[in-house]
């Protein structure tokens, strides 16, 4: 962006503009090249692969030669007809519909409480809530896995001792046990995002409301909540994308629970399709479907709340 052109030098202006465009492309190209390689190319390749299938030649289709042939949309049809894949999709959607609101509400509650608490312990609590974000999903799952498995888990042992029979890994419960792991990990992170936004709100606003006689609850409900709306939208969208990708938790818990099958989540289905069944074409179709649903849902959500991603300069 150039300032006012210098007088008496119209020819230099075009030259500096050309220079500016050259410099901009120099700064942008390294990123764009890698973005192309790691984002655009895989999408293109997945689309391409998803439209092919492997055909075997030779007697009875068992012969040595295999070749890739055009498959049209048959891989997509196959994926969508596969009950395990669609049920898995429904499962993560149900998961998201329950876990995301619970987690965001939990994070909002903690953010508001910390914002209203006296200063002495705020630092300790904030750190305690945020700590689990430093535990990778896999480790968190291993950790909670131990806390779910009868025989090791002190939680099960304690419940048993008061005559309460819990099965964290049973058919009905395991999805919510996974939800607990995700909630445990990400509530503190979301809380921190919300707190950052709360702090960016001018304190005079709260003060004015207080002087007008608003209670702490009213301030939270009518001033703070509307003001952190953008952050709530942001955290919800990121949670949505994360939920659709659910993978590490079910993968780690799978050996512990026979209620988790190979298509428990769409990602698990695609992974097993590619590496267990060795069918990369169907796996590609499933990956495309997953990306499509993620984009539709997150754009849809942003549209719904009227918060299309804006760039900073126009905002």
């Amino acid at each position: 962006m150039r300032g006012a052109p210098r007088r008496g030098a119209p020819r230099r202006l075009t030259r500096t503009e050309a220079r500016s465009a050259r410099a901009a492309s120099g700064f942008l190209l390294p990123f764009l090249a890698l973005f192309l390689l790691c984002f655009i190319a895989p999408i293109g390749y997945a689309l391409y692969e998803s439209l092919l299938k492997v055909e075997r030649t030779g007697p009875l289709g068992l012969g040595g030669e295999t070749k890739q042939v055009w498959a049209g949309l048959s891989n997509y049809a196959h994926a969508l007809e596969d009950d395990r894949f669609t049920v898995g999709f429904g499962r993560v959607l149900l998961f998201g519909a329950v876990q995301i609101p619970v987690m965001i509400a939990f994070a909002t509650g903690l953010a508001l409480l910390l914002d209203a608490a006296s200063a002495r312990w705020v630092g300790f609590f904030r750190t305690a809530f945020f700590l689990p974000y430093g535990v990778p999903g896999v480790i968190a799952s291993i950790l909670w896995g131990f806390l779910y498995v009868p025989g090791i888990s002190p939680l099960v042992e304690m419940a048993d001792s008061i005559g309460w029979n819990v099965d964290f890994l049973g058919r009905g419960a395991v999805l919510w046990s996974i939800a607990n792991i995700v909630t445990w990990q990400f509530t503190g992170y979301n809380m921190l995002v919300l707190i950052a936004q709360l702090k960016a709100v001018p304190g005079e606003l709260y003060e004015a409301a207080r002087i007008d006689g608003a209670s702490a609850w009213q301030v939270a409900r009518h001033i703070k909540l509307p003001l952190i709306r953008p952050a709530l939208v942001l955290t919800t969208v990121f949670s949505l994308i994360g939920t659709l990708q659910l993978f590490a938790e079910p993968k780690v818990l799978k050996p512990l629970s026979n209620s988790i099958d190979s298509g428990y989540t769409p990602n698990l289905a695609a992974y097993n399709e590619a590496f267990t069944s060795n069918n990369q074409h169907i796996a590609a179709a499933e990956a495309v479907l997953l990306a499509l649903v993620a984009c539709v849902l997150s754009f849809g959500f942003l549209r719904l709340v009227g918060q299309r991603g804006k760039d900073g300069e126009s905002g």
């Binding site: 942008l28 764009l32 990708q245 997953l290 990306a291 993620a294 984009c295």
Partner: peptide
């Protein structure tokens, strides 16, 4: 800097934020 296609490039990059990384990993592996 101002240059043609700036907003278009930015929007494509923004859309990249919304694409699940795991959906990219499989084709990237291939």
């Amino acid at each position: 800097y101002r240059f043609p296609g700036r907003e278009g490039i930015f929007n494509v990059i923004l859309a990249g934020v919304l694409i699940p990384g795991t959906a990219l990993a499989l084709p990237l592996y291939l």
